[in-house]
Amino acid sequence: MNTSHFEYLPHPADARFIAHGTTLEDTFEQAAQAMFGVIIQNATLEPERQVDIELESEGLENLLYDYLSELLYLFEVEEIVFGQFKVDSVEQTNSGYVLKGSASGESIDTECHNFETEVKAVTYHQLKVEKESEGYSAHVIVDT
């Protein structure tokens, strides 16, 4: 059974979500999908442009923070609104974790992309990556 999905939870100022995945890779992909769901809703985004992502961080939570922050950075600087997220591997090393993957989407066009909310940043507030009986979950609050 594929248990990968995400859900939004109420928060008075910001967007809060939990991503679930059968693997760490799925969980990270779901978290990215959830975050871009805050920025743009129900959009069909073609994988016209792709960027590769490779990150190394000391811990899983920092890796998630770095991964989502990197996507926000690429969104603004490369001007790509991402619709597909692929995390090929999350591997433990001597000094922490390494993530390899890619994200794809369309060049930002404010004429046709109806942006919902600006996500300023990923917060550390209640940021968690947890092992569950079936897979993993990630708790994230982004500042909007």
């Binding site: 000391e58 920092n62 923070y65 950075y73 940043a121 550390y124 500042d143």
Partner: peptide
């Protein structure tokens, strides 16, 4: 947004380095 994102990361490590106990990261 990026300055804060960058330095939260730096401070997360600095808090540990200087032995500051944080109730919230």
């Amino acid at each position: 947004h990026q300055i804060c994102t960058d330095y939260l990361r730096v401070m997360e490590q600095a808090s540990r380095k200087y032995g500051i106990t944080l109730p919230d990261k």
